[in-house]
């Protein structure tokens, strides 16, 4: 029995400390693993396409899709609002579903699990999941992908690896888009490469232009080879 300072029984029960040690992302990661297993079993290689708004994520997907030789492309379009990008994909004959997050700044594993039901049946191909235009939080959430492809651009400036290190660290492939504009900009390729390589020693870097098509053949071949490895 607990007595308070006046000698009366106190209602205050004892405080007990419980060790939790639980990662807040555990459930998201569990769903992402389920999605990844399901896609792998269906012969679908999933690419999480990340990048800032206006980096050219949609045109990069289109540029790759047009050059695929052995894989059928599928797309999940993530946007805060609108279905403009889905219309672009559908017009090209690419099976696409739209996710509108209504304000949320990234896609997560439960959203992708639901979108896959809408895309089903999905068999033998490459699934591009275009994340919300944002260089910060998409890098923090796994969504069931096999690889992360980051679209950066020469117009954003060469300091991006230094300012948004996580996106560059987590990427399995980096595409530096809008290379046709290099003659008009002060983009410092050495500074960009140095920062990127400090963070990531493995991911290949493809310098491309969605406008002229430069670099896309190489990128499409690399993705097909990478998908074949699973």
């Amino acid at each position: 029995m607990l007595l308070n300072h006046k000698g009366k029984v106190s209602c205050m029960s004892e405080t007990k400390k419980i060790e939790v040690m639980e990662n807040i992302h555990d459930e998201n990661e569990r769903i992402a693993r389920e999605t990844n297993d399901l896609l792998t079993q269906s012969g679908v290689f999933a690419v999480n396409v990340m990048g800032a708004p206006g980096a050219g994520k949609t045109s990069t997907i289109v540029g790759i899709a047009k050059r695929l030789k052995s894989l059928t492309p599928f797309v999940i379009e993530g946007d805060i609002e609108s279905d403009l990008d889905t219309k672009t994909m559908n017009a090209l004959g690419i099976k696409t579903v739209q996710i509108n997050t209504g304000g949320a700044c990234h896609l997560d594993a439960p959203l992708i699990q639901k979108a896959l039901d809408d895309l089903a049946p999905l068999k033998n191909g490459i699934l591009f999941i275009e994340n919300i235009g944002n260089l910060v939080c998409p890098a923090e959430f796994v969504i069931g992908e096999h690889i992360k492809l980051l679209v950066s651009t020469v117009t954003e400036g060469s300091d991006k690896p230094y300012k948004y290190p996580l996106a560059f660290e987590k990427a399995d492939c980096v595409v530096l888009n809008k290379s046709d504009l290099l003659p008009y900009l002060d983009f410092d390729m050495d500074f960009f490469s140095k920062g990127f390589r400090a963070l990531n020693g493995k991911a290949p870097l493809f310098v491309v232009s969605s406008k002229t098509g430069e670099g896309f053949e190489e990128l499409a071949r690399w993705l097909e080879d990478r998908a074949a490895k699973g």
Partner: peptide, 20 residues
């Protein structure tokens, strides 16, 4: 020389709770 990223600084978890 150059440094590379580590997992220190990426933590996001509940260490413990105190209950009654």
């Amino acid at each position: 020389e150059e440094g590379g990223p580590t997992e220190i600084g990426k933590e996001f978890y509940i260490e413990s709770i105190e209950v009654q």
